[in-house]
Amino acid sequence: MAARAPQGARDKLAFLLALVPYLLDRERADVAEVAEHFSVSEAEVRQAVRLIAVSGVPGETDAYLPGDLFDIDWGAFEDDDEIVITHRVVINEPPRFSSREAAALLAGLQYLSALPSAGGHEVLDSVMTKLSRSASAEPSQLAVQSAGDADRILATVAAAVDAGLSVEFDYRTARGTSERRVVDPLRVDSVDSDWYLRAWDRRREAVRTFRVDRMSAVTQGSQAISTRPGDVAVPDALFSPSDQDTCVTVLVDVQILPFLGEYVDSVPDEVPAAGRVEIGLRLAHPDVVSRIAARFAGLMEVVDPVELRDEVRSWAQSALDAYETVPPSSDRAD
């Protein structure tokens, strides 16, 4: 086969990148054999091999030491025209996670394995073991705290969904009231660390969304569900707009916009990179605005309606007044 010289730097680079794995797959390779395989001249093969011998990656000191470079059997190369790589770098060492990266991934896998609805725990355990071993350094030991009652409630709800049985529970609404609900569970969804039950409420005869952490005294009924997931439309959005919703205008710091999620109803066309912006919220219950304001204290101000603004101010003042009624600690250090 006639030799063909690579044309330009791009072809030379492609040849070099293909040559390295070719040589690594073979214990020995003749210069003439390599030249014929890649359709290049023997002189170009020798030039490429000499370049490989001074290639590698810098070590921890950012300097190239002998162990950081490829090496070849120079005697076989110079005397017998044979190419033998005696020291390998880079190609046979895949990138490794740092200890911090591995710790973050392990924490996520621990969280997944702790979920009652997560299957294949053996697979997750195997992945975590391999990840710990393959990190560049020993990952930091992290523990994911269980949510306690919420996990048990979630397990009961998930089992009812799988079994197609009704669920009964006490539900604390955003207004702070509690009432007994009997529902046909349809599916379980999550948003960040919050879990929600999507279910057909038998009393209201409509699909409702329930936060798992507001459910208590949960029991799995013995009755089969009368409304199945295929019988009704369950929207992907957790909260669907309703004519009964309360629309609230608030002034918020732009940094909390991503955290307001589906509460946001309207946003200006142009949002500044920093500072405050006036937006609209749509809430199922007006009391929810107090909870949002408490979560983002100092970063949100209720503008309208005025009566809701006054209610939030009164609620915050009551919370402050409660601190004044707390007696001082008797074991305070002098």
Score class of each variant (00 low, 15 high):
residue 95 P to G: 07
residue 241 P to R: 07
residue 130 K to P: 04
residue 150 A to V: 15
residue 29 A to P: 09
residue 308 L to V: 05
residue 283 L to R: 02
residue 68 D to P: 07
residue 259 F to L: 12
residue 246 T to Q: 12
residue 229 P to I: 06
residue 178 S to T: 15
residue 74 W to H: 15
residue 251 L to W: 08
residue 203 R to N: 11
residue 52 I to H: 05
residue 279 I to E: 01
residue 175 R to V: 06
residue 276 R to F: 12
residue 69 L to A: 08
residue 157 V to R: 04
residue 305 P to D: 02
residue 214 R to S: 00
residue 64 Y to Q: 07
residue 99 S to W: 02
residue 230 G to A: 14
residue 148 G to V: 06
residue 282 R to Q: 02
residue 184 D to N: 10
residue 154 L to R: 13
residue 1 M to W: 07
residue 176 G to K: 03
residue 171 Y to P: 09
residue 136 S to E: 11
residue 51 L to K: 06
residue 104 A to I: 10
residue 170 D to Y: 08
residue 330 S to G: 08
residue 209 T to N: 10
residue 284 A to G: 13
residue 131 L to G: 07
residue 109 L to M: 11
residue 242 S to E: 13
residue 140 S to E: 11
residue 163 A to W: 07
residue 235 P to F: 02
residue 204 R to D: 11
residue 59 G to C: 10
residue 296 F to R: 00
residue 312 V to T: 01
residue 297 A to P: 02
residue 160 A to L: 11
residue 219 T to K: 09
residue 288 V to I: 14
residue 140 S to C: 00
residue 29 A to W: 03
residue 328 P to Y: 09
residue 193 S to D: 11
residue 207 V to D: 06
residue 182 V to W: 04
residue 27 E to W: 07
residue 194 D to T: 11
residue 275 G to F: 13
residue 2 A to C: 03
residue 21 P to Q: 04
residue 134 S to T: 13
residue 180 R to L: 12
residue 283 L to G: 03
residue 118 A to V: 08
residue 255 Q to V: 15
residue 141 Q to R: 12
residue 277 V to D: 05
residue 198 R to A: 05
residue 112 L to Q: 00
residue 239 F to M: 04
residue 198 R to K: 10
residue 117 S to W: 03
residue 27 E to H: 15
residue 289 V to L: 11
